[in-house]
Simulated scan of single mutants.
Amino acid sequence: MAEALHLGAKAGARAVCVLVHGRGQSPEEMQSHILARLAVPDVTFVLPRAPDGTWYAAKAVDPLTTDTRAALALALDHLAADIAAARALHPGLPLVLAGFSQGACLSLEYAFAGLPAPEALVALTGCRVGVLADDRRRALAPDLPVWLTGSDNDPWIPVEAFAEAALELGRGRARLRAALYPGRGHEVSDPEIAMLHEVLDGIHR
């Protein structure tokens, strides 16, 4: 399994953030595109690394196939192992699971799979993998704080998929905050950085 990148506070950390990169990206790109724009010196970061830079081959909005389910299961095992390792390295600290694009989608699937829940989830341009008609896990931890963002101008996550994710999070009784940024391209905007900063700055068990 590809090794995660560990950054941020080494001692005296107040919280842990597991930040998952998108399709064709790397932990180093998350460092330059997101972490460099945050001012949270007392947070330690764990950035998982997908084999070949991709968590699964299909588009998130395609109907689930046998191959996609298998790839998604492997990706979830990978993410779960990195989260468990982060918990073991930093026992007792609250953990925020965050991701961008495909990383946001994988983070949502992690939460819906009923795996050990983070203290908060931040899905920057994310949706469920598959379509509403698919047989998907819906074992979301009730009252999980979730921040979901999207755009009406994103080529990977259309606004309909963003809305469907919000619907499923609502049905799963998440404590949901959703924000849509009209005209924003496939990127993490300054308001989204500010929102992530607010989550990390205020997280506690």
Rank of each mutant, 00 (worst) to 15 (best):
L196N: 03
P41N: 08
A13M: 05
G183H: 10
V46K: 11
V20P: 00
R23F: 14
L74G: 14
S107E: 07
E198A: 15
L76V: 08
A133F: 02
A60Y: 10
D201V: 08
M195A: 15
F112E: 08
C17F: 08
A81S: 15
E168F: 09
R137G: 00
A178N: 09
H6K: 08
P145Q: 09
R37F: 07
A139I: 04
L106R: 07
D52Y: 11
R69D: 05
P63K: 04
G99V: 08
Y110K: 05
L106H: 01
A174M: 09
S189A: 15
L106F: 10
C127R: 15
I203G: 11
R49A: 14
A139R: 15
C105T: 02
M1N: 03
D77F: 06
E29Q: 15
H33N: 15
E160M: 07
L97Q: 08
A139M: 12
A86Y: 00
A81G: 12
P118D: 14
E3A: 14
P191N: 00
W147T: 13
G22F: 00
V159K: 14
P91C: 13
D190G: 11
E198I: 06
D201L: 10
A88P: 11
I83R: 10
E168N: 00
T44R: 12
V16F: 04
G170H: 02
V61Y: 09
L79I: 01
D154E: 06
G126H: 00
R49N: 15
F162C: 06
A113D: 05
Q25S: 15
V46G: 12
R137M: 05
V146E: 01
R69Y: 08
D62L: 13
K10D: 01
M30K: 08
T65I: 02
S107K: 04
V61W: 13
L47I: 02
L140C: 05
E28F: 01
R87W: 04
A39C: 11
I193M: 04
L176P: 03
G8K: 01
H6I: 06
L79T: 06
L200Q: 00
P158F: 11
A141S: 05
G126I: 02
C127T: 11
S101I: 04
